[in-house]
Simulated assay, not measured.
Amino acid sequence: MVTRWPHLAAEVVGAPWAEHRRQVEQNCAYADRQGFAVNLVPGNLPDFEIFLEHRGITTPSADDLRAYPDVRDAEAVMVAWPPNRSASCWCGSGRRYKQCYRPHGLGSLS
């Protein structure tokens, strides 16, 4: 994505992948502790391109990136959080949660 649209680098690569996953995991844990049900919608470059094409966008903005995935327009497959230890990890790695992200911990939720 950054190769194709370098102006989105700050939005896409604002943090290393491990840091991004840690932040997502912390945000999900915080929402869960507040009593909210948490579901994640995984995204990928081909689906983002389709999202842009349907809207006639050739050069996406940061707002377009934040609007994707628009679950009102698609049949998004939501991933419940927290996943069962033996379920596939929410990050899309294809590994089981207990072998992928869970060992890295949440850090502080403050």
Rank of each mutant, 00 (worst) to 15 (best):
Q26A: 13
G14W: 12
Q99E: 14
V2L: 09
A10F: 11
R96E: 13
F51L: 01
G105D: 09
A67F: 04
P83Q: 15
D70S: 07
A80G: 12
F51W: 03
W17A: 15
P16N: 13
T58V: 13
A18H: 09
C91G: 08
E19C: 06
E53A: 13
L52D: 00
I57R: 00
L106N: 12
M1P: 08
P46F: 06
M78N: 04
E53T: 05
A62P: 07
E11T: 11
Y68N: 00
V24M: 05
G105L: 06
A87S: 15
R85G: 13
P60C: 04
N27K: 07
L8D: 06
L106Y: 07
G107D: 08
W17L: 15
A87D: 15
R95A: 14
F51P: 00
A62H: 08
A18W: 03
V13Q: 15
A15F: 12
V38Y: 13
R66N: 12
S86E: 15
L8W: 06
C89Q: 06
G105W: 05
H7S: 14
G94Q: 08
A10P: 02
V12Y: 11
A29D: 07
A9M: 10
P83L: 06
V41N: 04
V12R: 04
A62N: 12
I50V: 14
H20K: 10
Y68K: 01
H7C: 10
V71R: 11
E25A: 09
F36G: 11
V38E: 10
E19K: 07
W90V: 04
P6C: 09
C91F: 05
L106T: 15
G35V: 05
G94M: 06
A67R: 02
C100Q: 03
W5T: 02
P16R: 11
L65E: 02
R72N: 06
R95V: 09
W5R: 02
N44M: 04
H104F: 14
G94D: 08
P6H: 11
T59V: 13
S108V: 11
R72H: 05
V77W: 03
G56H: 04
P83H: 06
L106I: 14
N84E: 14
G107K: 01
F48M: 03
S93T: 08
D47I: 02
Q34N: 11
A10L: 12
D32A: 13
G92P: 01
N39K: 09
R4D: 14
F51Y: 09
N44T: 04
I50P: 01
N44I: 00
P46V: 02
P83F: 03
N39T: 09
F36S: 14
L109D: 09
E49M: 05
P82L: 08
Y30V: 08
E75K: 08
K98N: 12
L106F: 07
T59F: 01
G56I: 04
L8Q: 04
G14L: 05
E53N: 06
A9W: 06
E11I: 02
R72D: 04
R102A: 15
W90L: 03
A29Y: 03
P69T: 03
E49R: 01
